[in-house]
Design a protein around this nucleic acid. Structure first.
Lengths: 250, 250
DNA sequence: CATCAGCAATAACCTATATCAATATTTTAT
DNA sequence: ATAAAATATTGATATAGGTTATTGCTGATG
């Protein structure tokens, strides 16, 4: 992560860094975002940031740590819908809807900034490029949901696990988390199971298969990609849905 | 469907009707939309409107007929991602991305309007309420994707089928398709299978179970809901994700 | 530093759904 | 109207992944 320091305070964070990659932001835009996110709060692991049924509140931005979107079924089963990594935020303008159709929960300890709707509206009025960056981010999140539907619907369990790991690795690396073939991945097998529509027991078996296949291994909260080729091949992974090439960068 | 006639030409269509329900539109806004969609084209069934990998083009609006978003896996398997009904359109501003991460295909014959990006941009500049309506529509589509992920990931096959039928019935009724407990549903068991992550054979068996349970039946392209109570109960259906109550209508 | 709660790992067993196959029916094309 | 193609239906069989249960690890807590 690039940290620019002016005077005492760093004027950037993972959120700003992410948006800059999606659309070029002026110094003024960066300053506005920095000001809006300059008082983030620490949140413990496993805390709901917002619950299904809640009225949408301020825009939540995860500056550090991991969180997830999720839904609970009538029978108590859980489905994780997306992972939020540093820099990710909840939907722009959910406040147009009356209530949340899903919850958002921290996985690890998180540093979370809350931007009041009014503040966001003002910022977007003054800086249309921020609007554009946020909009692109939302389109990418939609593409990711489509990839998840496809994975859960049509891939075998080993393909599914491999596919998710490819996704998380690419996303993490693009924000400077972890390096070369390695990544701190604070996701328990239970959390993975709830993301992939499987049981924890079976996730465990599949991880063993992937280890034996020489593709990857997860130990002590760390993902190690042993062979990218093998992993990508098992997953049938095509990164197009992450839209790392954008229209303005052809 | 409400058809208002001024002079000779109807100035509304399913697209406009849908947006009006999401945000109040001025006469000027309606007129602008009507003008932009006044030259729709007939498209045969099973035609790609846009393919994965294509550069996003004009905004596509389905004025009549059914279509679907879909993805094809390396092994040839297909996953349907969403059904488009009359009034639905493809994502606002996908053109910010370099290429489509999925395709859109007609299921039945369709009447499709294409609005050039430049036209849309002009309209949105002049009529912010249209922007708002389209944005809400997109948020609802996202909620629907989350519901699909949850269904495929965590519901049993019979629950999944029942859940999708509840969704389609509500959506269809809200645009004036079909009536009281009945709906023309031009979806083959193969198409349903590809939407629900199942095999056609198993869809067939599940439909039989639902018939026997007295919940619903599909015959000759028509869905008949025999007992809404039973169907909803089997599905564990909660319509909140369709966001029929909006923030401005509390 | 002992206890406890949550995870991970593995085994044995079971079931929901896939697969394969054959036939009937409906829709479309000629 | 007839042939051809696409769907729907049903049965028999296979299997991927679920369920239940046990054990050991690890890190948190008093």
């Amino acid at each position: 992560m690039l940290l620019m320091v002016v005077g005492e305070a760093p004027v950037t964070n993972q959120f700003i860094e992410k948006l800059i990659k999606l659309a070029p932001l002026s110094d003024g835009a960066v300053a506005a975002l920095a000001a809006a996110t300059d008082d983030p709060q620490n949140v413990d692991a496993r805390r709901d940031l917002i619950r299904e049924g809640d009225k949408p509140g301020p825009l939540l931005v995860v500056l550090d740590g991991w969180a997830c979107r999720y839904k609970i079924l009538p029978n108590g089963a859980r489905q994780n819908l997306a992972f939020l990594m540093p820099g990710d935020c909840c939907d722009l303008h959910v406040d147009l809807l009356a209530e949340m159709d899903h919850g958002i929960q921290t996985i690890t300890k998180c540093l979370v900034a809350k931007i009041e709707r009014q503040t966001i509206d003002t910022i977007l009025d003054h800086h249309p490029t921020i609007m554009k960056a946020l909009y692109i981010s939302q389109l990418i999140d939609e593409g990711t949901m489509r990839a998840w539907i496809t994975s859960i619907g049509r891939r075998s369990s080993i393909e599914r696990v491999a596919h998710l790991m490819c996704e998380l690795y690419l996303r993490a690396r693009s924000i400077g988390l972890g390096g070369d073939q390695k990544l701190v991945l604070p996701l328990s097998q239970i959390i993975l199971a709830d993301a992939l529509g499987m049981t924890p027991v079976h996730i465990n078996r599949v991880l063993k298969q992937l280890r034996i296949a020489g593709a990857m291994s997860i130990t002590r909260g760390s993902l190690v990609i042993i062979s990218p080729q093998i992993l990508v091949q098992i997953a049938g992974f095509d990164e197009n849905y992450l839209h790392r090439r954008l229209q303005n960068a052809p």
